[in-house]
Design a binder for these strands. Structure first.
Lengths: 231, 231
DNA sequence: GCATATTTGTCCGTATGTATA
DNA sequence: CTATACATACGGACAAATATG
């Protein structure tokens, strides 16, 4: 098994990231070094490196001498995530008075992709296009670190999405609003788009919080210790 | 050598983080696995885990089959950092209309610490207090993810500081302004403090950019390949 | 341009300590 | 409380890529 243009640990980390964000590995699940290493055909050392690569993204939590688990996000995390999300996204949009045409085309592409997915009744694809839409919006700011931050935030959000609701009820309502936002930007009304996006995100947050409450007992998947992450 | 309440890799990562932010390990320096492992008394595997832990903080860059190096930041990185910094800090301050008294006390403590350090003519300590001051400001937002983001940003900024100028010329002018900001917050004028902070940060950014330009040739410390970090 | 030395990448075996049944 | 399973950490080995002369 030779290498492409990346280390094995990086490829393993990417594979795990997809398994997590796709809902294959659910929150609370333990990632056993021995079993996962056997599954992926890599040594425990390499797998541990991959764990460390993913650790700072908030997707995995590390318990000393117990192993790594897929993170379980609570309502407080959701509120925290949306706080940063609102800040980053609205600022990027508000600053897009004269948006980069190439990036705006990428935004438009995701809006079209969402429409196509709706027509195909593929709600998972709608959700993916919606995530990409927001990633592209942030890209209007032209800031690598902001892009990286947004990627992390969206990865964590996907963790929530897979737990609380179906892709359809999560994303359907926003397909139309995304197009409205795009057209507002194309008209040069960045400030208006930013304001609209702020309301949009508030709405989304409340929808998710309601879904959380609907899950009667917020029972973690794994062991039921309510330990706070240290540091 | 048993463990405290953290893994060896985490302790090694923390030690390296301090060596970097303290300027002991300078930008561009290579971190040899063999030599560093011997120095710190840990195996290569453990050291590599520590490298991965630090990687996502932007302090280390990883070149395939070449090793890890202390990151070298260019003017574009500086601008990018300050963009996020301004966004995060000003938002935290602007939202502090009714600031948490305990956190505000921590802010005040750093202002006092800076004054004391000035009196002691300890400009490194002034710089540390200044960094902490801004970390505490952000803490007014009460958002764990924002706190973590700010920690990463400040760690990267320290990388710049150690390269372009002395602690005194970097921080002296802001000691007074920090106190002014604190008093503005104590008076309940969060919006005014946020505006002032914005000008403050613009000033700081321009000061650093000027220092960059003053370094005649922007020659990297290490090997002189202008390779872009992938992805 | 080529051969060599050095360093990283990756795996394996093993010993030890910790948490959980 | 003991036992078992698993994570932690080490050191050695070889392959692969890069840097050097």
């Amino acid at each position: 098994m030779p290498s492409d243009r990346s280390t094995t640990a990086e490829r393993v980390a990417e594979a795990l990231r997809h398994r997590i964000t796709d809902g294959d590995l659910r929150p609370g699940a333990q990632l056993s070094e021995e079993r996962l290493g056997a599954d992926l055909g890599v040594s425990r050392n390499t797998l541990r490196e991959a764990f460390r690569l993913l650790g700072h993204d908030g997707l995995l939590v590390h318990h000393l001498h117990r192993g790594v688990f897929v993170a379980t996000l609570e309502p407080a995390d959701l509120v925290d995530l949306y706080r940063l999300r609102r800040l980053v996204e609205c600022d990027a949009v508000r600053g897009a008075n004269d948006p980069d045409a190439a990036v705006l085309a990428l935004v438009a592409a995701e809006v079209d992709a969402a429409d196509a997915a709706v027509a195909a009744d593929d709600w998972t694809a709608v959700g993916t296009a919606n995530m990409h839409f927001h990633q592209r919006l942030v890209q209007l700011a032209g800031s690598p670190r902001t892009d990286a931050l947004m990627r992390r935030l969206l990865a964590e959000l996907r963790l929530v999405f897979h737990v609380v609701a179906s892709p359809r009820e999560l994303h359907e309502r926003y397909v139309r609003q995304n197009r409205a936002l795009l057209e507002q930007l194309q008209r040069g009304d960045a400030a208006g788009a930013a304001d609209e996006l702020g309301r949009y995100l508030d709405d989304s947050q409340h929808q998710l919080l309601a879904a959380y409450r609907a899950r009667s007992s917020p029972r973690p998947i794994g062991r039921l210790d309510a330990e706070a992450v240290a540091r």
